[in-house]
Amino acid sequence: MVTRSTHPGRSWTWSRIGTTSALLVAAVYFLLPIAWVVIAATKSPGDLFGTNGLWLSDTPQLLHNLQRLFTENNSAFVTWVANSVLYSGLGAFVATLLSTACGYGIAKYSFLGKEKLFALILAGVMVPATVIALPLYFLLNTVDLVGTRLSVLLPSMVSPFGVYLARIHSATVPDEVIEAARLDGAGEGRIFALVAAPMMIPAMVTIFLFQFVTIWNNYLLPLVMLSSEKTFPVTLGLTLWNSQTQRDPYFYTLVVTGSAVSMVVLVGLMMGLQRFWKAGMTTGATKG
C-alpha cells in the first residue's frame, strides 16, 4: 500500500468538489474578521466608520498608523508586547518544568495518596479560571503582590492540564530505561534530567505552547491584578486604549492596528510550530 486508502487519486469527482466547497465556505468564515482587521489597520479614524469594511479606502495610511502605534504613550505598545512575551514565555517555561516533573513523578512512582492527588489536580482543570481570579486578587492583596508582575507570573506557572498531558506522555519513557540508569548508579533527579526529560521533549513543547497561548490570551487575571500600564500585557493594553476611545476616537485606529499586529505575531508563531500541536494532541487525546 503506497497511499492510504482514504486518499483516492486526485480526480475531480463530485464528492471532491462538494467537500472542498464546504471547507472553503468555512475558511471564508474563519478569515473574515482577520481580513477586516488587516484592512481596517490601513484606515484613518474617519474612514474606519465611513467606508466599506472589506475595501481599502482612497487614502490608506498603514505606515502612519503603525508609526503611531509604536510611538503613542511613550511606546506603550512595545512595552505591552514585551510584557506579554515575558508573562507567556517565562510563565509557560516554568509551568512546563513543574508539570512535566509532576506528571512524571505520578506516572513513574507509586506513593501514598497518588491517585487522590491526581484527581485533585484534574479537578483543577475543571475550575473555571474566572472563579480563581477574583479570590486570588484578594488573597494576593493581603501579601502585597497585587499590581506587581509577579501577581500575573506566579499563577500562570500552574498548569493542571499540563500535569495531565505529562502523565500520559511519560509512557514514552520505558520503565526498563529508567531501571537501567538506576543500575548504572544514577540518582532519580539525574535520571529525569538526562534520560526521561529528553525523551519527553515533544510533550514538553506541547505543554509549553498550550500554556503560552493560554497566558497570552488571558485577560481576566491581568485585568484584576494590574493597575499600572507599564505592567500590562497586550490584551489589557489594547482594552485600555479601547476605553479611551470615549475621549479620543483616534484610539479606535490604534486598537485596530494593535490588534492586527499582535494577531499577526501570534498566528505566525503558532503556524510555525503547528506540527508540535498535532504531535501533542494525538497522544493527549486518545490515551487515558
Binding site: R16, A27, F30, I34
Partner: peptide, 24 residues
C-alpha cells in the same frame, strides 16, 4: 475524508483564531 483539496491550508486557517485573544 482525503477528498478535499489543500487540507493543510484549511487546517491552518481554521486553527488561526485560536491565537487571537478573546477580548480582541
Amino acid at each position: 475524508t482525503g477528498k478535499a483539496l489543500w487540507p493543510r491550508f484549511f487546517r491552518v486557517v481554521y486553527f488561526m483564531p485560536y491565537g487571537v485573544p478573546g477580548v480582541i
